[in-house]
Design a protein around this nucleic acid. Structure first.
Ligand SMILES: [Mn+2]
Ligand SMILES: [Mn+2]
Ligand SMILES: [Mn+2]
Ligand SMILES: [Mn+2]
Lengths: 259, 259
DNA sequence: TTGTAAAGTTAGGCGCACCTAAATATTCTG
DNA sequence: CAGAATATTTAGGTGCGCCTAACTTTACAA
């Protein structure tokens, strides 16, 4: 006697190892790795449905190119993307859906951590990068609801809706703005904590006003004037790496000097 | 040119696959599976440092016994436990530390979900079972701090301190109490949502007063009188499975009938 | 156009975390 | 105490997710 129930199994797995999970990933639960790949590909290719290159994916995920090559084959088998060997990959509709779902999860978590748990904005990304795979849909929805369905994350990136739609406002890099352009910061790339701390120290945050004062020659540094929230105006010289991490909206005409 | 930085690697892994991670797990990051194993073994063997049996571990984790056998060898290599083949396993000091760390994480998360995100008490366990492996120490500490360093989780289980100590109050099962025993519910086993919903419907929760009125013969059902919070008194007949899931403190003398 | 550099893929391998089938050790029972 | 029942381990195998080394394809430049 003593039933020694031992239900599930057969398909029941633990954390990562063995098991089936093949075929067309329709509604299937994806692995954390697969989730990160589709998210990265979406971010590289853009909402416009362009193609992403193997080495770019490898670079972004810090994975060796042959590993990416192998994974792309699997993602193609799952029908999350189409793979033109030696050319690149393009997400299918299912792939874009999966990517937008992950972007929503990631950004809701970041926003929750920042607003409800006082996380500094340079540390939310790393935490969200792991939690996004572990949280249930219910948890994401409860977080979003608690926050009042936020529209943007702490770095200014838009949060896809529960239904998987996201405003597709074309981003421009501060690095590409001409001298004289007066722009508003929409978002800051969030994967480098040190860079985030640095730009924050310059008052460069979503919503800040930034005017390009001067561009160094030969892809040189930019001199920018930053209008902080308290009406303060400060001028800084920032390198291209920083200027490429800062996204701005369309310039609203060259600002006259000394308005 | 174009540095194509591709730092880390060599030891840098992704979500689960390949890599080193051998030897004595001193301060090492453990895999999610390893974390679940030590937690399960601690719960089975008790704080007293007893031994846990292979099939019991297999049963609790819903994993086939041969898989457990193999994992126990690895846990022994990590010096998280000692393995007496065909006899059982005993956690080492490092193993107990790891287990208590996981118990703290699990229970802090459960408490946070219940108190800050209005999670119903029957759903926090499944969510915590996954998040406990993904959350950083910082996140756990911020949650605990936000909650005011809670001492017990939503099911009444004690939360180990940040330093890894936990009050070791011996638990008694309601199922073992003699007729007439008047006890207070300390905790309820939380792994079966349906059972949790059921006992909550009977007002059996941590803090509730329960008196054993009658015991059915041959390991039969118990008739209990439950004093709810609002001074209500209700009598129920509960099966042994339920009575075994409810933990109570030491009985405070037989209650006289009709006080 | 042809050679070379860069990008991408194939081949082979490893550890993790599972599985089933079969063997073995231990415990219970008559 | 022999045989049966139960517990546990060994043997062999799978998919995931990564790696390095070697090869192939594509892009660029003299
Ligand atoms: Mn992020
Ligand atoms: Mn991630
Ligand atoms: Mn629990
Ligand atoms: Mn777990």
């Amino acid at each position: 006697m003593s039933p020694s129930r031992r239900t599930r199994r057969a398909t029941g797995r633990g954390h990562s190892g063995g098991g089936a999970r093949h075929g067309t990933a329709a509604g299937q639960a994806l692995t954390g790795s697969v989730e990160d790949y589709v998210k990265a590909i979406y971010e590289l290719a853009g909402a416009s449905g362009g193609a992403a290159a193997t080495t770019d994916i490898a670079d972004r995920l810090a994975i060796a190119p042959p590993s990416v090559s192998g994974m792309l084959r699997r993602l193609a088998a799952l029908e999350l993307l189409t793979h033109e060997p030696y050319k690149g990959v393009t997400l299918t509709a299912a792939g874009r859906r999966a990517a937008l779902r992950m972007l929503r999860r990631h950004r809701v978590i970041e926003t929750y951590l920042a607003r409800q748990l006082d996380y500094p904005w340079d540390r939310v990304h790393a935490e969200a990068e792991r939690l996004e795979h572990a949280a249930s849909d219910e948890l994401i929805d409860r977080m979003a609801s608690t926050l009042g369905e936020p529209a943007v994350d702490p770095h200014g990136a838009p949060i896809p809706s529960r239904e998987g739609t996201m405003a597709d406002i074309p981003q421009r890099m501060l690095a590409d703005q001409p001298v004289g352009a007066r722009t508003r910061v929409t978002s800051v790339s969030d994967d480098d904590p040190a860079l985030l701390r640095y730009v924050a120290s310059l008052d460069i945050r979503p919503g800040a006003s930034v005017t390009v004062v001067e561009r160094g020659p030969f892809e040189g540094p930019l001199t920018v004037r930053v209008s902080g929230k308290g009406g303060t105006e400060r001028q800084h010289v920032v390198g291209l790496a920083v200027a490429r991490a800062v996204n701005v909206d369309a310039p609203r005409g060259p600002a006259r000097r000394g308005g």
